[in-house]
Write a protein that binds this DNA or RNA. Structure first.
Lengths: 237, 237
DNA sequence: GCAATGGCAAGAGCGGTGCTCTCGTTTGTG
DNA sequence: CACAAACGAGAGCACCGCTCTTGCCATTGC
């Protein structure tokens, strides 16, 4: 993947591929994912539409490349925010940093967020390549909560009348176990992390898609309030 | 709106309008909102595409009609579920009934949910007509929580380090006050209801858009677990 | 009872889309 | 140097939203 392109043609190919992706990202921001037009992208880079097919075999392939790139960018942003907290034992600060990085990226790239988490593009089915980059964000959240758990934090107990859901979250538990984050995560902790992740995404989604306009004065402040309450529900102090 | 159509022409118009909407709903379910093609709908009802413009001035107008219809349908379903609980004091049962009605409708109409809550359709801006039907669902949730509050329930207290967000949720508070649901709802209760609504939507959205596949074995059971924990966070017993 | 009005379906046409194919040209390599 | 692969351009196919014109026919006014 990282060997230096020797020939002039290979270098031109790499440059043009990047240029196409960049132009597509720009179009994504203005027009939204569903309206991403391969012809418009081609015009933006000064190509004829058929020439783009030399670089991406189909519109779906271009979408896949964009999705992977965006997942990685978002994941990297959240990882960086967590890593930037000097005191690794200050899990509350790490949680908030990760949460805020998530929203910051989303607000800066609304079209891309729609591509990643919005309505699936009609004919498009996400290939396998996209699932691993997709997990980067939630992996950071899990890691922070796991550190908090090791330091004694505990999620809210399940309600008394709630049915047992031990094996319900087994896939998630195995996911974190396989990555060596927590060997045997408690059910209630896994549950609350998943809920928190859902709430964070829902909050950002509501803001960007305009479902928060009549409810809250300042979306940024609201998001912060949500993130803090989620931390409390996870036992993070 | 409800006067009987006298002339044969007016009746035919009403019938065809309904037929177009029904066909559009069917297309929505199979193709998704962004790919809703006016020409395809026209074919389905045995019309030529230009004839549809006699009934809807544009594709956006058709979308708006669909959105209003779907919001109303979803809102009615949730209202019905709440109203069907015989013991009005059993707020826990009412909460779960409303939550499950929400998911049931969403699972039965994934395309429509994408239209309502997914990525906004590129060139489309939702007109004023859609905002009131959009609030029906959340109004039910608020009403249930308000009844629970009157019976003594209280939301989780805010975390100690959380900034004051009293006026942040003022628009939401005024919304419920204006409708006579609760005169002066406590900030933390409003906050938790908004969070719960966000989480419910996020959970359904994650399930329908495929972001839950590797985390949870049974989406229905998972949704139930989430709804119960949200109830607990709201102090509903 | 008849003619004018106006609602209506149909068709052609505009510019846009994803995608395929062909045709010269350019580039790297045996 | 020659051959093959890579490439850009263009034409063309079927589809899209939307507009305009044409002609039919029910409703309405005289």
């Amino acid at each position: 993947m990282a060997d230096a392109p020797r020939s002039a043609r290979a270098l031109a190919r790499e440059t043009l591929t990047r240029e196409i992706l960049t132009a597509a990202r720009a179009r994504l921001a203005t027009d939204g994912p569903a309206a991403l037009s391969l012809r418009a992208v081609a015009r933006d880079v000064g190509m004829v539409s058929s020439a783009v097919y030399r670089y991406f075999p189909s519109r779906d392939a271009l979408l896949t490349a964009l999705i992977v790139e965006c997942y990685d960018e978002l994941g990297a942003a959240v990882e960086r925010a967590d890593a930037a907290v000097p005191d690794r034992d200050d899990v509350a600060a790490r949680w908030l940093a990760a949460c805020h990085a998530l929203r910051a990226w989303a607000v800066a790239h609304p079209g891309e967020l729609g591509l990643l988490y919005g309505t699936p593009v009609p004919g498009y089915a996400a290939p396998r390549d996209t699932v691993d980059p997709a997990t980067r964000v939630v992996r950071v959240l899990v890691a922070v909560v796991a550190d908090a758990h090791r330091a004694g934090a505990d999620a809210r107990p399940a309600p008394d009348d709630a049915p047992d859901i031990g094996e319900l979250v087994d896939p998630a538990r195995q996911f974190v176990a396989a990555r060596g984050i927590v060997a045997d995560a408690p059910t209630e902790l896994v549950t609350r992390v998943l809920m928190a992740w859902t709430t964070l995404f829902g909050t950002v989604s509501f803001e960007l898609f305009g479902h928060l306009v009549g409810s809250v004065t300042d979306p940024a402040q609201w998001y912060d309030a949500v993130a803090r309450r989620l931390a409390a529900d996870l036992g993070i102090r």
